[in-house]
């Protein structure tokens, strides 16, 4: 189960809406081992594409080092799908390489209703999980 504050959920959705029709992506860092998403980090989509996303490699190095220095890890890795459902694609699964992360997908295909779903992706196997919106 992913436990996340309404504020952080809303920031992910706002980022996805802002970048629509391109895919948006980012990370929420939290203390290592805590499973608590706390620090919102909006990332560039180096592909600037409606069908693909990739973290900019130099930005990723900087952000990953910063997390290391702060003893954090990527608790949530999010991205948006802009014309399809919020479910991991084959490409998403082949790249997923953080077994401890919650992979959050948002779909912005409906302008009024955002789909917000969370998954574990381990060894190519996708498992959807519940999302609990918790107070800060």
């Amino acid at each position: 189960m992913l436990t996340i504050s309404a504020r952080l959920r809303d920031r992910i959705i706002a980022h996805a809406r802002a970048d629509h029709p391109d895919e948006a992506c980012g990370v929420i860092a939290g203390p290592a081992g805590s499973d608590r998403p706390e620090r919102f980090i909006q990332m560039l989509n180096a592909e600037r594409s409606p069908t693909f996303y990739r973290f900019d490699s130099m930005e990723q190095l900087r952000v990953w080092r910063e997390m290391d220095d702060r003893d954090e890890e990527p608790v949530v890795i999010y991205h948006s799908h802009t014309a399809t459902e919020a479910y991991p694609s084959r490409t998403d699964i082949s790249y997923a390489s953080e077994p401890a992360a919650h992979y959050v997908l948002v779909s912005t295909r409906d302008p009024d209703l955002a789909e917000f779903r969370s998954f574990r992706i381990r060894d190519g196997v996708v498992a959807e999980e519940d999302v609990l919106i918790a107070p800060e």
Partner: peptide
């Protein structure tokens, strides 16, 4: 030398 997993994906 630092190795990081690329973070990427998309609908297709």
């Amino acid at each position: 030398v630092t190795v990081l997993p690329a973070v990427a994906g998309g609908r297709s």
